[in-house]
Design a protein around this nucleic acid. Structure first.
Lengths: 159, 159
DNA sequence: GTCTCTTGACAATGGCATTGTCAGGGTTCT
DNA sequence: AGAACCCTGACAATGCCATTGTCAAGAGAC
């Protein structure tokens, strides 16, 4: 049993309050992102959201695009759509600094979350063991920086 | 002397009031688009804006993206930037209906403007004859639907 | 000389993003 | 059982953005 598996970035581990704290947003905001089709965290069999490290990265991307670049959620959705359809790497090529920055912040955030889990870091057994896999996560998630759960592929709540 | 030249879509012909009427926006809006770096119409030697058919198309694209798709100007700017850097054709591939629609509307608008010029359609000699070419228009404009004046290449007023 | 254009500024309107809260009900863990 | 968290859905406040509109002072076009 290798430790590598526990660090799988596509593995859903964070409950919404933890994820929200990691990326410094209100849980409400994460739900909104999901409603907008920008995010699609896994769910437990009992319907509780679980965010992976990739999900966290994705959220940080959204924050970068909206807060730093002034793009609204509709624009972010289009960009993610483009990323998906045109073999990824589109945003990377364009916003190198942005990526580096976002990546660094993600590293930092996740790391600090590992160090001290103030709310519910280790609340019992591994939440990822009994995963629903209900979401549209196609078991793939090959991309490096973005990717994770391609919410844009699944249902599109809003056009 | 062929009529073709007079229909060159990259040829700056419309003064701001005419262009604004063609695309059904306030002249103020066109100036804002320019300030935002989304548009870069040519200028006469005396500094008066002249919009080409491609410029008009570009504005219709902006309107489509903002009004129909809900994307804000920052998002539009990013998309145009991507179009430029990644060999064009990006938005086309993604929004086929959108393009068709926009194109149709542009055709319609320009055509109707040709039929009846209410404000100042043929106000004297050809405005394009004494063109400044001051703008960043690189004499190229090879792309079909979008292109025209790649404002994103020039000065970037706002980051 | 009159009309339109230029820039720059200010303002009003409506819409979006984010945060926040409340209610009613389910889940997890002690 | 009880506490703490999650779920959905709704409502509201705040602040920012997009668009339209106007005014002023100056210059170009006919």
């Amino acid at each position: 049993m290798q430790r590598r598996l526990e660090r799988d970035p596509s593995r859903p581990v964070y409950v919404i309050s933890v994820a929200a704290e990691i990326v410094s947003v209100h849980p409400r905001t994460l739900r909104i992102y999901e409603d907008e089709g920008l995010l699609c965290p896994a769910r437990t069999p009992t319907n509780i959201r679980l965010y992976s490290e990739n999900d966290v990265r994705r959220v940080l991307w959204i924050r970068h695009l909206t807060r730093d670049r002034g793009i609204n959620l509709a624009g972010v959705r289009i960009l993610f759509e483009l990323e998906e359809r045109l073999g990824k790497r589109i945003l990377e090529a364009l916003f190198d600094e942005g990526i580096r920055e976002s990546e660094a912040r993600a590293e930092e955030a996740v790391r600090s979350a590992y160090r001290a889990g103030p709310t519910g870091d280790d609340h019992g057994k591994d939440p990822a063991t009994d995963l629903a896999s209900t979401a549209t996560t196609g078991a793939s998630t090959p991309a490096t920086t973005l990717a994770s759960t391609p919410a844009t592929t699944g249902r599109r709540p809003r056009q």
